[in-house]
């Protein structure tokens, strides 16, 4: 393929772009690697190397409130992800398959806004709303909030998958005597499954990572790991945070690779 010959990039420019590319990668990765590295340092100070040690991990595992926050985080993430994935997938199907019922613009806007809205604004909105309708802040409101921002992400990912699907697939199933349900079950769902799982993993990641919205709508005892860590960072930086951070980054990486593996499997 001569696909990229036409890019017409001169050799010198190309070399500059390459240098820039690797510098950007260094910029993206070095800080994370530094955190991971220092999490294995025995020193009491976060920025200095004190020999290899696992003491901060031990300390982390023995930290009651931290473990409690972690458990909270996992439950909240799991529950909000499942609901958001079901709702988001149904919405994507509706938007892709049955266009006529409402104007495209309005509903696209409602669907896309939660993606670009700043966390703080969404947090304020939900806090005001929850207090107004009298919902007690706690795990429940955190889950409600996480579902609210995750539906959109799932819907967008699933819709991208649906857009690549030949509509004749479903017609062929119907032509071959499949009922609507059988068509969905045997043809549509298997074909959009990578999108559904990908969207679900993205939702899971976002839920595991959220700080600002959760910190606004949480109640006593319902705090999540990132919010807890954020509080620790604001108070004072300790090497224990490095260990927790490493844990969180590792979790994210596992999720990325899981997601990529699913998307690649046809």
């Amino acid at each position: 393929m001569t696909l990229h010959e036409g890019a017409a990039t001169g050799r010198r420019l190309d070399r500059m772009l390459t240098i820039n590319g690797w510098l950007v990668f260094a910029f993206l990765y070095l800080p994370i690697l530094v955190v991971i590295g220092f999490s294995f340092s025995g020193a009491n100070n976060v920025g200095t190397w004190g020999g290899f040690s696992l003491r901060w991990y031990e300390r982390m595992l023995g930290n009651g409130p931290l473990i409690h926050a972690l458990q909270n985080t996992l439950w909240i993430a799991l529950f909000s992800t499942i609901v958001a994935t079901v709702f988001g997938t149904a919405a994507a199907l509706s938007l892709d398959r049955y266009r006529r019922w409402v104007s495209k613009g309005t509903f696209d806007a409602v669907l896309y806004m939660p993606v670009i809205i700043p966390d703080v604004t969404m947090a304020v909105m939900l806090l005001l709303w929850f207090t107004q309708i009298g919902l007690p802040l706690g795990r429940g409101t955190i889950i409600l909030a996480h579902i609210a921002f995750n539906i959109s992400f799932v819907a967008i990912v699933v819709r991208a998958r649906l857009a690549n699907m030949d509509p004749a697939m479903e017609e062929a199933a119907a032509d071959l005597y499949a009922s609507r349900w059988a068509t969905f079950r045997r043809v549509t769902l298997p074909l959009i499954m990578p999108g559904v799982l990908g969207g679900g993993l993205l939702a899971l990641t976002l839920s595991l990572d959220d700080v600002v919205i959760t910190s606004f709508v949480q109640g006593p005892g319902s705090t999540t790991l990132p919010v807890h860590v954020f509080g620790l960072i604001r108070r004072s930086v300790t090497p224990e945070i490095n260990a927790v951070s490493t844990l969180m980054v590792t979790a994210s990486m596992i999720l990325v690779f899981a997601s990529l593996a699913i998307q690649r499997r046809e």
């Binding site: 697939m169 062929a172 119907a174 009922s179 074909l191 046809e266």
Partner: peptide, 20 residues
Amino acid sequence: KPPNKRPVNTVFQSYALFPH
């Protein structure tokens, strides 16, 4: 009548074979 209730079958232009 919906297509699944009709005694006809179709060969689609794109074939529409189920890839999975």
